[in-house]
Structure formats: structure tokens, C-alpha cells
Amino acid sequence: MSEVTPNSNRLKAKDFITVGIFTAIIFAVEFVCGMLGFIHPFIVASYVVMIPLVGAIPMMLFYTKVQKFGMITIMSVLIAIIMFVMGMGYLGAPLIVVAGVIADLIARSGKYKSFKKTMVSYGVFCLWICANYFPVIITAESYRKSLIDEGYSAEYCNNLFLAINYKTIGVLLVLCFVFGCIGAVIGKAVVKKHFEKAGIV
């Protein structure tokens, strides 16, 4: 989309707009998946599978438009801000931003061209999803109490904490990464099928 002269590494207005658009799309995906999570707590745990897979399609398209350092970082900062505004707390914010910066660095090491690097980078970026679980883990006891106070049933809470606690978070993080990589492959195929043929990329 943006014409890059080799020397200009500064982000331009156009890049910021691209970041904004894709952040909005990613968040719409997160929002729809998030709604499902209130049916049963095990679905909350399965965010790590759903969001990386579905989100991969817009993200792979986004990666084709990223050519400079900073775009993925800004995206992670925006996600952190929106998470806070939506009332999901600030506990996850450091994880989101760190994941964003590392993902950006990995993608840059492949000059935003190498697909292998992009895949790993997207896997790392997906770790931000685990930030959704942070309130559950860090403040487990008081969070459980507050959920019950707020009217969640004890059964919902028990299941929630069965699925998400400090023991399973490692597994969830790994799952996020793995499904991020799988999603990247699928997303790449979809982008190729639809967008490259249409000449949009």
C-alpha cells in the first residue's frame, strides 16, 4: 500500500491509519469470540484456539502491509488501551505490549518479508490473548469472590478456575503460540487465495 523508499524508516500517516483499521478489525474478532465465552467457562479457555485462528486472516493481510518497525508495537499499545477502556483491567497491559514489541522485532529480523519469521512473529503476538486471563490468575481468590458477589454462580467460577489457573497458564501460552503459527499458515493461504489474486496485496 505505502510506497517505501529504502531510506525512510519513519512511519507516515498512512501507516498509522492502516494500524488503526486492522486494530479495529482484530478487536471486533476478539469481541465476537468473547461473547461466546459467557456460555461456558471452558469456552473462555478456548479463546487461545479461536482468536488466533480467526484473527490470523486479518493479521496476515496486515503483515503484508507492514514494512517498517513500530506498526505492530503501536497495534499492541492500542489493544492495551482498548482493553482498559472496555473494563478488562490494566494487569495484562505489560504482557500485551511486550508481546507486540517482540513480535515486531522478530518480523523485522525477516525484513517483514520472510514468511517463517512472520509466522513466529504472529505466534508471539497472539500471546496477548492470555492477558484476558490475567485477572483470573493473579488475583485468583479475590477475583473469585468478586465474581460470586457479582452474581456468577459458584459452578461457573469453579469451572473457570479449573480451566484457568497458574498451572494451566503455561499450557495456554504455548497453545496460543502453536495455534498462532497454525493460524498464520491458514491465514496466509486465505490471503493468497482471495487477495493476491485480486491484486489487492
Binding site: 512511519l11 498509522f16 494500524v19 488503526g20 483499521i21 479495529a24 513500530g70 503501536i74 488501551i81 482498548i82
Partner: peptide, 18 residues
Amino acid sequence: PDGITISLAVVMRFFPTI
């Protein structure tokens, strides 16, 4: 910073569009 401002403004404008 400009980056955050512009991107956030776009996000804000874009949710209704989506």
C-alpha cells in the same frame, strides 16, 4: 505521540463502519 493519536482516532471512527 502522533502515532497513537491518529491510530486511535481511526479505531474510534472505524467501529461503526465495521
